[in-house]
Nucleic acid binder design. Sequence first.
DNA 1: AATTGTAATTAGAACTATTCCAATCAACGA
DNA 2: TCGTTGATTGGAATAGTTCTAATTACAATT
Lengths: 143, 143
Amino acid sequence: MQLSPEYKERLDHALERSGLRSTKQREHVFSVLLEKTDHPTADEVYARARSEMPTISLATVYNCLETLSASGLIKQVNFEREPTRYCPNLTSHAHFYCKESGEIQDIELSDEIIGLLQASLPAGHTAHRIDIAFDGKCGECHE
Amino acid sequence: MQLSPEYKERLDHALERSGLRSTKQREHVFSVLLEKTDHPTADEVYARARSEMPTISLATVYNCLETLSASGLIKQVNFEREPTRYCPNLTSHAHFYCKESGEIQDIELSDEIIGLLQASLPAGHTAHRIDIAFDGKCGECHE
DNA sequence: AATTGTAATTAGAACTATTCCAATCAACGA
DNA sequence: TCGTTGATTGGAATAGTTCTAATTACAATT
């Protein structure tokens, strides 16, 4: 799969800002995440990446995911003790994990809620990241 | 350290409700968590538990922490890829993790915020758990 | 009190996700 | 094109946790 020029440019700029090089592998891992935004784990990214780039190593996939996160192109998503998942949705959103289907959905959050959460902190504290994870049962699994 | 009669009773009832036995080890691990509520990891609980009960094993500590969680007596707290921590505060609260001091604080949340979060879910979804973790810098570390 | 069935504990092995390491390779500026 | 430096690779190492099989403790019956 080919990265669109728009995303290619976004990738190159973000890497350059961080003083990092643009490589085939980073580009490919980024494209894998954009292609199917179902919050894959590193292993899943590895499997998908290999189908087009059979020589890529798992270590490289981890490295790429790390650099893409550090450059602000993707986000890491953690659920309890499960493997980290990766997500190219950069809006401030929460995640809903359905224990039944295993599906993970993005939940968009209003600025109001984010503001109220920030305001719950004691004076002087500053948060540069808020993780919100719902565990439950999605509509489909409720029938 | 001795479990107060009040907590001893709470423990026994909760275990009984789950069809589990009350044992010295479970009691002791519970008391360790109540004694110093600084969100210790399993390893830390193990270290503290051993000072009074030198024969307890790490596996048992993990088992006890698991059964106490399952019985609703304590909560597990996860931060990104860090080891799970344990907390006897049962109110619905978030956690603030200061990257500088490593300290973890409970952040009490209003019912309003919990309600707004629940209301952010698509119709039909139900959450039986909401995890909220702030990462940042606490007041003390800001000077 | 002895017996039985079941559950809990124990020590250590196994496992999983991730990181580290040393060698090779590739990108980019001179 | 060359050289420097950063990136990739495969495999080894690590950390946290779970699993396993054997032993021990508990509680209900005889």
